[in-house]
Each structure stands twice: as C-alpha cells, then as structure tokens.
C-alpha cells in the first residue's frame, strides 16, 4: 500500500492483470517453455536469435542493395526495428492461441485465464532481452556511440511488452468466440509490419499518408527504437504518443478480461 496508484495499475479493479499473485506458477510455466525451447535442440537459442537476424539480412539485401533505400547505418536501422517487431508479433500470435491451446487445463483446474497469454509474452520477452546485446554489438562495431538515451530502453521495453500483452489478452478471448481469427491475425500482422516504419523512416512516407502514422499504435514506438539504437536523441512526443496507445490497449484489455474472460471458459 506504499504506492496505491501504481498498485492499481498492476491490479486494476482488484484484477490480477500481471499475475502478481501467481509467481510460482508463472516461474514454472516460463521455465518449462524456455527449457523446451532450448533443451531439446542444442541450437535452440541460436535458432531463436538467428531467425530474425537472417530476416534482417534478407531485408537489407532487398531494400538496400536492390531497391537502393538510402538510410545511413541501415543494418542497425533494420535490426533495431525487426527485433522488437519479432517480439511483438510472436507474442501476439502465440498469446492469442493460448486459451484454446490450454483448454484442457483451463476447464479442469482453476487457473486465471490471463496466465497463459502472460507466459507466452514473458517467454518471448526474455528472448527479446537476450537479443538486445547483439543489436548493441552491431551498433558498436559499426561505429555508433551510445549515450544517456540508453536509459530510455527500459521504458520502451515496458511499453512494448505492455502493448503486446494487452493485445494478446484481448485477442485470446476473441479467438474463443471467433475460431477463424487465427488466419486473419497472421495476415493482419503482416500488413501491420509493412504499415509501420520498421524498414523505412516516417519522413519517407508520402505527405498524403503522413496523417496515418500516428494512428498506428506502433508508429511512435518504433521511431523511438530506431533513434535509440542509432544513438540519436529520442523525441518526447513519440514516447508520449506510445504511452497513450499503450494506455488505450491496457484499458480495453481490462474491460475484456474483467467482463468476458471468465465466461469465455464456458465456450472452450
């Protein structure tokens, strides 16, 4: 009760949104997922990191070598966008499927339904954090110098995690009712990837589409990631807009969870 306002963000309406009361369960489920990912194949972690790195290589070749996109330090630029994006899209897609995927457990043992999307996001978040040093190494090798703006990295990471998790919460409940959502989400994530300035700079968008940029919840956030890893100063407006979007997702997720999640179990 030291910081009641902050506590309320973690437990809005007495609802344990971030599974704070289930630490042992979360610990076991996350370590299960990590063990399975990394134990069965000796190269497990290697693959998880290699996959986005190879994607970056492909994007670099196509956009830099063939399409001649002129962005300085394009390798870092791509990495600093694609790595957070990989976390975001994997978490949302995996998180969406968790209620259906764990239906045999959820209908037999009283587990808060938000546990499974949370675990999916947390597992991916750990992989994301482990990939961070790689991006920084590339930056340092290619001559970027980092300063105090690195202090913003935790802030950006929290916003990114919060957005992915809250979106996964909303979609996991929707997926129980709309069973073909899975196909739509794969496609929508693909569209979202290209609609977000990840491979290009916001300034490169033609004037008539500029307005849409800030309608994209991820627009400001990815601009921040780019600037941070390129050693530039962040724009406060971008951070604030991202926080505002995260807050909207958060409120929607609470509404869905508090009102609908328990009932959704009856349809599993």
């Amino acid at each position: 009760m030291l910081v009641p306002g902050f506590l309320n963000l973690i437990r809005p309406f007495n609802f344990d949104l971030f599974c704070a009361g289930k630490k042992f369960l979360i610990f076991n489920l996350v370590s299960r997922d990590l063990k399975i990912k990394y134990r069965r194949s000796f190269l497990g972690f290697f693959w998880t990191v290699l996959h986005p790195l190879i994607l970056c290589g492909i994007y670099y070749f196509i956009f830099h070598e063939i399409l001649q996109v002129k962005i300085p330090n394009y390798v870092i630029f791509i990495l600093s966008g694609v790595i957070p994006w990989t976390f975001f899209s994997t978490s949302v897609i995996e998180g969406t499927e968790t209620l259906i995927g764990n239906s045999s457990l959820l209908t037999k043992v009283p587990i808060p339904p938000q546990t499974f999307p949370f675990v999916a996001c947390l597992t991916n978040f750990i992989t994301f954090l482990l990939a961070m040093p790689i991006v920084f190494s590339f930056g340092l090798i290619l001559g970027v110098s980092y300063g105090f703006q690195l202090l913003y990295l935790p802030v950006l990471a929290v916003i990114l995690f919060s957005m992915a998790y809250t979106l996964a919460l909303i979609l996991s409940v929707a997926y129980v009712h709309l069973r073909d959502l899975k196909h739509a989400i794969g496609l929508l994530m693909q569209i979202w990837f290209y609609a977000t300035p990840i491979l290009y700079k916001p300034e490169m968008i033609p004037q008539k589409f500029q307005g849409f940029l800030y309608l994209n919840p991820l627009g400001g956030l990815f601009a921040c990631f780019h600037r941070l890893f390129l050693g530039e100063n962040l724009v406060l407006r971008d951070i604030l807009i991202s926080i505002a979007w995260a807050a909207i997702f958060y409120l929607l997720a609470i509404a869905v969870q508090v009102k609908k999640a328990k009932r959704a179990l009856e349809y599993l």
């Binding site: 042992f24 489920l29 063990k35």
Partner: peptide, 18 residues
C-alpha cells in the same frame, strides 16, 4: 509436460494446481 522429467513435473503440476 512430456519433455520434462518427472521431478520437474512435480513443481509444474503443483503450481498449476495452485
């Protein structure tokens, strides 16, 4: 979980049971 040992599953199962 089939990939984890029985011992590891004790902790997993117990935490799932609450």
């Amino acid at each position: 979980n089939p990939d984890l040992s029985g011992y590891e599953n004790i902790f997993l199962n117990a935490s799932i049971l609450g």
